[in-house]
Computed example of a mutant assay.
Amino acid sequence: MALDLEEQDGQTPLDPDEKAGLKAGHLTTQAQLNDWEQTNILKAVRWLQRTRDPEVLSEGFCRDLHKQMFKDTWKWAGTFRRSDKNIGCDWTQVAVKLKNLFENTRWWIDNKTFPPDEIAARFHRDLVWIHPFPNGNGRHARMMADALLASMGEPPFTWGKGADLVSGTEARGQYLAALRAADRNDYKLLLAFVRS
């Protein structure tokens, strides 16, 4: 039986080749996939806690974290997407856009351009916009932002009191609205949400 994925607002559809990369063939519904991925993500959280002083602002760490989060689910975990999506830069520009984001973020930190929360929120929004991977970009970008905060000696974001931001919940709606406002360079909603 094939995996039946429900498209929700803010989610990026997978193409047939990406769907074929599913390792867990026993999964048949979106809910099962979400639960399976969440179990994998919890393993990645433990991996991250054991990782000493990671170079968060690097392509290697970006890929490694995604791989740790999704390696038990997708064969392509940690591999940049190879097709355009409904969000994100042209797929051929992912590595360049990431390099620019990492350099800009280093500059923001070194020059104290914004407070730490705003640096992490802007980093998160830009990483979501680049959309480096076929799937899991929002969850990955949230973990990357929290890792960035840790590298600055700051506590992680609460992300809407830890609400489910994957399923179609009210908190997910607030999160997506905050990201869309940040796309228009209005970060008030996102800065409020990340600490709510």
Rank of each mutant, 00 (worst) to 15 (best):
D64R: 15
L65P: 10
L65K: 07
L65Q: 09
K67W: 13
Q68P: 07
F70N: 05
F70V: 07
F70T: 06
D72Q: 12
D72W: 08
T73I: 14
W74S: 04
K75S: 14
W76C: 04
A77P: 05
G78T: 05
N86A: 08
N86S: 12
I87Q: 14
I87D: 06
I87T: 11
G88L: 07
G88K: 06
C89G: 10
C89Q: 07
W91F: 15
Q93N: 10
Q93W: 11
V94E: 00
V94N: 04
V94A: 02
V96Q: 11
V96I: 12
V96L: 10
V96G: 10
L98P: 00
L98R: 03
N100P: 03
N100S: 14
N100I: 11
N100M: 12
L101C: 07
E103Y: 10
N104P: 04
T105K: 00
T105W: 01
W107Y: 14
W108L: 05
I109Q: 05
I109V: 15
N111H: 15
K112D: 09
F114R: 06
F114Y: 15
E118R: 07
I119Q: 05
I119H: 03
I119D: 01
A120Q: 06
A120E: 06
A121E: 02
R122M: 05
F123R: 02
H124T: 03
H124M: 09
R125G: 03
D126P: 03
L127I: 03
V128R: 04
W129T: 13
I130S: 03
H131L: 09
H131W: 11
P134A: 12
P134M: 05
P134G: 13
N135M: 11
G136E: 01
N137W: 11
N137F: 11
N137D: 12
N137S: 12
G138Q: 02
R139A: 08
A141N: 05
A141Q: 00
A141G: 07
R142L: 00
M144A: 10
A145G: 07
D146P: 06
A147H: 05
L148Q: 01
L149I: 08
A150F: 12
E154Q: 15
P155V: 10
P155N: 09
P155R: 15
W159V: 07
W159C: 06
W159D: 07
G160D: 02
G160C: 04
A163I: 12
A163K: 09
A163Y: 08
L165A: 01
V166S: 09
G168K: 15
T169G: 08
T169S: 09
A171Y: 04
A171D: 02
R172I: 09
G173E: 02
G173Y: 02
Q174W: 10
Y175V: 04
A178M: 00
A178G: 01
A178D: 02
R180F: 07
A182R: 01
D183V: 10
Y187Q: 00
A192G: 13
A192H: 13
A192C: 11
A192T: 13
A192Q: 14
